[in-house]
Design a binder for these strands. Structure first.
Lengths: 227, 227
DNA sequence: TGCATTGCATCTGTATACAGAATGTGTTCA
DNA sequence: TGAACACATTCTGTATACAGATGCAATGCA
């Protein structure tokens, strides 16, 4: 997304809402890394507001798990143990698997067609090795699967979990061969959804997240090692 | 839980944390009903604090979905459509089914034994028709299943979803025959978990939540009708 | 009588003020 | 030289102040 457009979105609503979006964006895009301090005064100066909306925003981000707080200490971007990271990936695999299964059963004809189109369009990006563009298509592809399940609460859970995982899987498409493998796995999911094969869709989605998980956890390990 | 003990728990930590627990408690126990206004000033007076911690608490409860806010309006206890309620129950069924499956695979010998004991202890309450005591045991039973999955993030998701559903299934054990049926369904889950039969445990848990769902949605309908 | 409008009371949203906790530094003493 | 203590600085947590938005009621007009 264009930077100007992003800033425009961030600017709507109350100041607190703006701060929630702005800080969440810093975390999800990786501008601030897990463990980094989110100083209230610095944040307030940075966005030219008082501490009050910054504090409320940090509280809300804490409630959804993006930041951690201890009394009388600065908030920090949530950092998790390898074990907890693994549990988030496992949960994500279960959730995506549910979405794929329900999508296979419930998607409308239009939704299935759009999913297929989105998927086909990304093929070109794989051959070009366009990592960032593919990443955007990838996000869109998964979002379609989440919506296709036709279950608002599952959508919320899976979206929230994805946001919390984002800081830990930023570089996934940089690993060699990851782009093609992702595409092939998407292909398995799409084919299963198109023929309304819930069981296969479910298995394919679970397997897909498992590969992402392996790649990211390996990456997290090496990042730790270089610190 | 004793009232004094509950108040003691609520009183620890920062004022904001106290307010989060206190207000969440009002909502989850049903002292405040879906749709009711959570006036900042009234809350502040009620708990003898300033508006600041109340506001922060409401923001956090909003972030996890227990209250709803619109700019320049009072926060209200989250009220959902029948459709959204159904989606929450379906999500809950999926999550409990995951927990049951993973519990069947992963619980330690001790965890399995404790689950069985907890379950057996509740048999007496069924015969006595002790709804409130059974309800407490029921909560404990399910919590054991959530923990048994040995996955921190799944535990978080299922606990959070349970809290959000709480306002809408308060009276479930008042319906005739519900106590016995709940016990029998627990029995199926326990037996499957004890013999490490993941598939059966999963199915039994899904079915169990489905009956709760049916009962609660029927109840919600009639509650709406009597308004 | 019915409807629009104005004014007031109430509440939210943000900024600021102030007290207390945590942290880091410099000094003192062994 | 090293450790410990006191002080100063910085930041958080809560209260308060104030401006703007909302809603309601009373009034005026058709």
């Amino acid at each position: 997304m264009k930077l100007a457009r992003k800033k425009e979105i961030i600017r709507s609503g109350t100041t607190v809402e703006q701060m929630v979006r702005a800080i969440a964006d810093l975390i999800i895009t990786g501008a601030m890394r897990p463990g980094e301090r989110l100083d209230e005064i610095s944040m307030a100066n940075r966005f030219e507001v008082s501490r009050t909306p910054v504090r409320e925003a940090l509280g809300q981000l804490c409630a959804i798990g993006l930041v951690e707080r201890e009394p009388n200490k600065s908030a920090v971007v949530t950092n998790v143990t390898q074990q907890h990271l693994a549990s988030m990936f496992e949960a994500m695999a279960e959730l995506e698997s549910i979405c794929a299964r329900l999508s296979a059963e419930r998607m409308t004809v239009d939704e299935r067609r759009m999913l297929e189109m989105e998927h086909r369009a990304s093929a070109r990006l794989v051959h070009q090795g366009a990592e960032d563009d593919y990443s955007a298509h990838n996000t869109e592809f998964h979002t379609r699967l989440y919506r296709g399940a036709h279950n608002d609460h599952v959508f919320e859970l899976v979206t929230q979990t994805r946001a919390r995982l984002a800081p830990f899987r930023r570089a996934q498409f940089r690993l060699p061969g990851r782009l093609l493998r992702s595409y092939e796995e998407h292909d398995a999911i799409v084919k299963a959804v198109l023929r309304a094969d819930a069981a296969s869709a479910s298995r394919a989605a679970y397997a897909h997240v498992s590969t992402v998980s392996d790649a990211s956890i390996v990456f997290a390990r090496s990042a730790e090692a270089t610190l």
